[in-house]
Design a binder for these strands. Structure first.
Lengths: 335, 335
DNA sequence: TTGTACGCGTTATCAC
DNA sequence: GTGATAACGCGTACAA
């Protein structure tokens, strides 16, 4: 291999065949005789020929690239989502262009533009800012394959595969209620996904005729361990809950640490349930009960649906929007 | 925007200018008059023109894409590495194609081939299997920009930016020795990076004239929490260490849990040091002393070097191989 | 079975 | 200032 790369043209010149024959032979077309094929293949190997996928993409109007838009990567759920998707795509001959938005609407819009401009065959995106709904709808209207990995409740006519967070919180609250708890707290942030959880929590209270006390809802500033540690105090002192639902495992773990430092016994005096069933939940000092987010189910369904959309794109079949909801499961531990 | 996308050709037809003029106007060439430029821009906006980056890449021989090859994503260090790199690349106008190898040499080789085939402008890769050294060397020999994010000690003439793990383990062991420990254990796996750490551990013992007892070195089967939990027993019972260096935070945390369950006091009876300074280390019941892996330093240096190589590629300047070593830092906590 | 001609969408070169 | 024309590397009709 020389410093400049080898093209089909060179192989054609070396072997004396036309570029066309080389092209066909390299991809094993039955129209080329076994003999010429082996000559060409041999020459290609010797020169270390590497096909130029860019040129192929241009003529085939297919890049075999899927764009993934995530808000961040440090959240364990998203880490796993990215990894799973990469594995699935690879098996189907696709590769993955990863875009991180830092939860910024501008970066999200930019990511969409870049991916479309790069002619990706489809997009998977996780959570969505309402600011970019118009852009997403436009893509969808043009049959551009795009699947949302959240927000099934959004008023947006787009395919979506997501975990039903509302249902998860409902299950968590019901679990507490059945254990006899009356004063159940809720600790979360102000984002859309936490609001959904809060709605599930409200619904469970209502269905079980438990009066709601606003002081039982606490707010966290971020969704990390420190935020849980810092926020539980106010909630605990103001509302005196006997159980608390936290919108993230880390929030719960931080809150639990605060309790331990003050001798508040878990779960005797105060119980906790977190979300996502991260590794940290299972190996905490007091293993944390958590609402499991089934990443594999989401990524499998989402990619399956995406591939279907890509297939349908040229075939001009009518496609009805699909909203696939994955039911979360409560992983009960000792908290 | 219709279902089929708009090209420069359509704008040319609509406005009456040539395709060439359209192309120049869209990128704000000074050679086009202000008047025609605004006409073309207006038309482009109305038709919702989106440039085709694939075509541009073909003619410019530049994709503005960087390939990243990682063994996995769930390891917190790699998660952060991926996220940081994405951010840096974006700022410089690049996007990121992410490949996960699952620590399989075959997948690693495949990833390299795919990325080269896709004409990426450069590759960043983290750890490396000796099986693919020849392939990497070949790329490097052809001036293909590729930077390794590990293995500065490898006998491979390739640019690398990495954290000096040997030095980290040396510091950890020295820390224990200065605290008066004589029987210092080592718990790690058999991979290259753990071997490096083990060498640092040996060196510190030797430099401090502490005789080495082979039973003090324990092996883990994986690098998770469970592996630490499962492996510490044998090491503890066989060698009776008073301090243990674990090659990963999670291994240490698992081992610490085993100790707690048996009433072994930390750090009075047994001390621990982990690697990577993950979040879990800081909020463990007994916060874990850890060798910090400075992800930001690595990603910044690595991308900087990569951009430099990309610049140099056409300019045919002689480039000497760079091995940039980042010094790790011991984050001392209570373990 | 193989070769010719053309197109993918854009940029680059050179005229005018 | 603007417009032909060629080129990037490959795939696909169609012809031979």
């Amino acid at each position: 291999m020389n410093s400049k790369s080898i093209r089909q043209k060179e192989i054609a010149e070396k072997t004396g065949f036309s570029i066309n024959t080389v092209s066909l032979a390299l991809k094993g077309s039955p129209r080329i005789s076994e003999e010429t094929r082996s000559i060409i293949m041999e020459c290609a190997k010797q020169l270390n020929y590497i096909p130029n996928v860019v040129a192929r993409s241009l003529v085939q109007k297919k890049t075999n690239t899927i764009g993934i838009i995530l808000t961040e990567l440090m959240n364990p759920i998203l880490t796993e989502t990215a990894q799973e998707i990469e594995q699935i795509l690879k098996k189907s001959g696709y590769n993955m262009m990863l875009m991180i938005t830092n939860s910024s609407p501008e970066q999200e819009a930019e990511a969409l533009d870049v991916l479309v401009s790069r002619q990706v065959d489809g997009i998977l995106m996780y959570p969505v800012f309402t600011a970019n709904f118009a852009k997403i709808k436009l893509l969808r209207d043009n049959k551009f394959p795009i699947i949302l990995l959240a927000g099934g409740d959004y008023e947006l006519p787009t395919d979506a595969v997501y975990v039903n967070r509302r249902e998860g919180a409902y299950k968590a609250a019901t679990h507490f209620i059945q254990a006899g708890h009356k004063r159940i707290g809720f600790l979360g942030g102000g984002n859309y996904s936490d609001k959904e959880k809060q709605n599930g929590y409200f619904a469970a209270l209502q269905d079980n005729h438990i009066p709601f006390d606003p002081s039982l809802v606490g707010r966290v500033q971020s969704d990390g361990y420190d935020a849980g540690y810092a926020s539980i105090e106010e909630l605990y002192k103001n509302a005196m809950p006997t159980a608390v639902i936290c919108t993230r495992d880390y929030i719960a773990l931080g809150a639990m640490r605060w309790c331990r430092e003050r001798g508040i016994r878990i779960p005797e005096e105060l119980s906790f349930i977190g979300f996502d069933d991260t590794a940290a939940a299972s190996f905490a000092e007091i293993p944390l009960t958590s609402v499991k987010y089934d990443v594999k189910a989401v990524t499998e369904k989402a990619t399956e649906l995406l591939f279907q959309r890509i297939d349908e794109k040229d075939k001009s079949v009518a496609m009805s929007i699909q909203k696939i909801s994955i039911q979360p499961r409560l992983v009960i531990r000792q908290s």
